[in-house]
Design a protein around this nucleic acid. Sequence first.
DNA 1: GATTGTTCTTTTATGCAACAATATACAATC
DNA 2: GATTGTATATTGTTGCATAAAAGAACAATC
Lengths: 303, 303
Amino acid sequence: MTASDSSRLRAAKNGGSERAEHLAGLIMALARREGMKAGDRLIEQRLADALDLSRAPIRLGLKALEAAGLARGEPHRGFVLAKNPSSGAAQPALAAVGRSEQVYATIAGDVLASRLPADVTEAELMRRYDLSRAELQRLLDRIAAEGWIARLPGYGWRFGETVSSPEAQAKAMAFRAVIEPAAIAQPDFMLSQEVIARLRERQLRVLEGELEKMTIGEIYHSGCEFHEEIIRGAGNPFFVEALKRVNSIRRLFAYRSFADRDGMRRHVREHLRLLDLLEARRYAEAAELMAKHLQRPLVAGLS
Amino acid sequence: MTASDSSRLRAAKNGGSERAEHLAGLIMALARREGMKAGDRLIEQRLADALDLSRAPIRLGLKALEAAGLARGEPHRGFVLAKNPSSGAAQPALAAVGRSEQVYATIAGDVLASRLPADVTEAELMRRYDLSRAELQRLLDRIAAEGWIARLPGYGWRFGETVSSPEAQAKAMAFRAVIEPAAIAQPDFMLSQEVIARLRERQLRVLEGELEKMTIGEIYHSGCEFHEEIIRGAGNPFFVEALKRVNSIRRLFAYRSFADRDGMRRHVREHLRLLDLLEARRYAEAAELMAKHLQRPLVAGLS
DNA sequence: GATTGTTCTTTTATGCAACAATATACAATC
DNA sequence: GATTGTATATTGTTGCATAAAAGAACAATC
């Protein structure tokens, strides 16, 4: 059986479009980020703008949400949230992870465990993971964007030392411990009251119970967002980009670590302390705290 | 006339393969980096290893070099450098810049001058620059890897704020002024004697006359290589990656700046001073010098 | 023994046509 | 006046056949 044979099989099997479910997931994630509640209206154009899409795909997502029982829609009146958007862990209706996501995780695992050689050809990967060329290329593009694989000049690709090295986790933290405090210490660092308030509210929500219901992936994601919002305050996109890049690689490790909820709680409290300092514009102290925050021997690297 | 029509036309017109000339350029650049002289042998396997290719493409490059009069080959005896590998400016035989390179430069210029909207579709770009889909995709992949464009979730791409902002140049330097000194100050920073010697030799060569013969692009490239080699000493790939990324974006601006040869000379002397400090393992002082080196109001941003 | 020359295999790129997804414009409804 | 419903135009993807490029193995030569 060739890769394209099995692709067709897969496509034929799942009735509900995978894409639609994915879109539904994006909408729910957005709703959660924005702190929406059951009963709130889901306005197509607003969602479309927020997700950088047009209304057509949003619609598909909304219909999928309705099918999953997370939204209710009436003709000419649009859709309304049916439940408070809780974490994915508590909402398995959409949890069906797409196949490419699975393959991505498998590849990441194989690289981390050195089950793959540093240099690989596309044909090899197509055979190994039973992918069509198109599927594989999307995957490779994504991985390349995350920075842990690069094209060779001739045929084939090479995995970056960034990931394969066993100390990568520590190196990533060392790098963050340099750029994050430095960003706060930049002369024109500035974080608006609104942003600080939003971040604080989000951290409080996590502290007051939501933590228990979150998956590791979500905890990690939330931590990344916090730090990325803060570094954005330096007004220098290079800092933001660099942090995002590190985080997208750290995620590969983070997925494999287990969650120490108590450590996390301490961690979130530190986030709140940081926000206090930033609000008071005591940037030097904030930078110092950030440095400590990142240097602390960390709970399985989650931060 | 469609994009593919004109592609075919172009392909038919230029007799000597463009790819071969490109390979020839790679070989000459390597020879220059390695400090080879006229008369040195060009051993296929060695070149192939250095360039991460197999012998087949190397061969094409060598033949192109022979055609351009830069190498001489005899049957069963391989090829030999015919001239000292000087800079591209002095060696116009291979200067024929590939078309995709030209388009790349045009796009970069258009983005910098805001002649393009932030969001674009592939179709738009194909029409505007008369490219086939394949050509465009290679280009977009490259630009995405350099980090100044990213896919939107739906159709189209968005240029990053990183480039379009007018202060990008200053921001890039501010970022470098953070990570480069910090890398040197990392506890396990280490640069081997060989690397230091190689870097010093290269800088001396530039100082003693080569500078006059170099194009702006080459001067820029050489500066980047110097700094990237040094930051590599921290043994932390995240630092290296981050710097490379910044540099690949800075290049867009650098091409437009003009070369102040005197400023460059001062600059290179500072590089040499830095190497002295690094050799003496006086890392704290070296880090300090690096910080100054990067903060100095720079000659058109070249560094 | 190292390097080049030659041949054969494998891998990837390209252009195309059919297809699927997204965007857009405007009418219908609240 | 804002939002949804619907039709239509635009854009991007996929699989395929074919062409080109690169890699690998081994013989020939120095």
